[in-house]
Design a protein around this nucleic acid. Sequence first.
RNA 1: GCCAAUGUGGCUCAGGGGUAGAGCAAUUCACUCGUAAUGAAUAGGUCGUGGGUUCGAUUCCCACCAUUGGCUCCA
Length: 592
Amino acid sequence: MVDFANKEERNKYRHSTSHIMAQAIKRLWPETKLAIGPAIDDGFYYDFDRDEAFSSEDLKKIEDEMKRIVKENLPIERFELPRAEARKLMEEKGEPYKVELIDDLPEDAVISFYKQGEFTDLCAGPHMESTGEIRAFKLLSCAGAYWRGSEKNKMLQRIYGTSFPDKEQLKAFVAAREEALKRDHNKLGRELEYFTTVDYIGQGLPILLPKGARVIQLLQRWVEDVEQKNGCLLTKTPYFAKRDLYRISGHWDHYRDGMFIMGDADDESKECFALRPMTCPFQYQVFLTRQRSYRDLPMRLTETSTLFRNEDSGEMHGLIRVRQFTISEGHYIIRPDQLEQEFANCLELAKYFLGTVGLLEDCTFRFSQWDPSNPKNKYEGTKEQWEESQAAMKKILDDLGLEYTVGIDEAAFYGPKLDIQYKNVFGKEDTLVTIQIDMLLAEKFGMEYIDKDGQKKLPYIIHRTSLGCFERTLAYLIEKYAGCLPLWMAPEQVRILPIADAHLDRAFEIRDALRAKGIRAEVDDRSEKLGKKIREANINKVIYMFTVGDKEVEEGNVSVRSRFEGDLGSMSIDQISSKLLEEIETKKAVKQ
RNA sequence: GCCAAUGUGGCUCAGGGGUAGAGCAAUUCACUCGUAAUGAAUAGGUCGUGGGUUCGAUUCCCACCAUUGGCUCCA
């Protein structure tokens, strides 16, 4: 019996399932070339090179063949070969990708193979004892994937699948997956009218509808307010600038493909502008307006910044990945001795924001480092400068006792990052918040301050977001709360349901009284039955419903119904508004 | 950008070489209703866009646009 709670055991089980899939495919289409096929978090995949694309019918065929292989209960045997023989074996089997893998193995590597029946695969293992041990599996999807993850290489076909020790667990996994997809912000956010897209506006350019715009507005006001209390200075800088600015910052060299450029980038005789992909070079100008002293530091500049990035066409996803977005961005210009304290301050602030909206518990931290061997001219600066900034960040993170993973080649072009990561309903991870150390750009812009000793010195800069990008955050909030946001950020906090048309006047009176208190209220003024109005208020994820009929008009009350607690009985307007206002003021969490 | 799938009234979907249907939503009318769907009627689509094949295309072919899942990239 396999211990599925143990990650190694689980991975072994699923890795063996991927070999069974590869074997099935080789039986069905022997000309298919094998690439790699590891276990992943929720299952496994295997990459194949085959001229024809795998269809959904093919997946069924493959599953059937896999069942046969399981039934055959083939023993899985490991053996080793010296390099030359290993290479020869894979050449004979017509597996060029495997040959390439062998050639790239370190000289002293043990080259092992796993054999099950007629199928032999180059593999480090470990594996199960026999194919019969695999009890329940399912192939989930096909996708393209570059050989060795490089877009310069051929695109292979990847088949994703998963497996479990029994059918029940597999069923539960599939059910949970379907349940998660119901929270998909891209579907729910459109249904609930948070946002929409229009073909002729363009990809990655969503329209925030009144409800979505409202949520973002209140998040933004809250963030700006808290930041101000935290000593931040709000700026408003232009949305675009001449290419000269980006030349200094390095964006022109390292980020031009990601920018929307207005005018001919290559014609030096003409003016050329670009929309800003980041706010850094603009905000530095604030520091540069006059001579600065060490007393001016830290200078915590923040801006609610709309940014423009020309993402490749296949990258866009709902509100999570867009071409225009608004971010709570900031640049802390600091003395080197203030680095640790200011970094900790940024992290605390981000944790406060994420914790309050309820996302922090599902976040993970990633220390994003440079990759000196990155072939694409991605990074600015020298090896020494990178080693210094990364060592500084490592020390800070370790001193703070933060648990994090390391992401190689995930750094910004000017420095290492602490990325706070979040996963969407498909399990895809993106950055929600980032805090970055930059020891390069101050020098490029000639940003100096006069230190105590009268000497000119270069400041450090922390680039940071606090609640990150509002569009993306909204997307995750919709997914986290399945569309029903906590009361304090709900676009519609109360829906008033008059029983009959005779109660309409009173309903509007109540609405206006609530609005006067700052509560977002609407009236369902249709001539429908109460049951229908409640049903639709629930579908629309409204938390509080106030029923108004003869009794309520007479008493001057409303009957309160909560989405979560059901009928709460009759209350006066003052009574219920105080309850609501307290819930709003304290930013109370809701059930999910 | 790359691999693949998809695109039929606001939404969910059926259909299919001879110019289109259902449910929900919408509108109107009747009902004036007490805690998750009242009934009836009406209106709404050049079948994503542009080419091509054909006597004839929404259906077949090509290109483009958009959407979806991945890859690469990234907040």
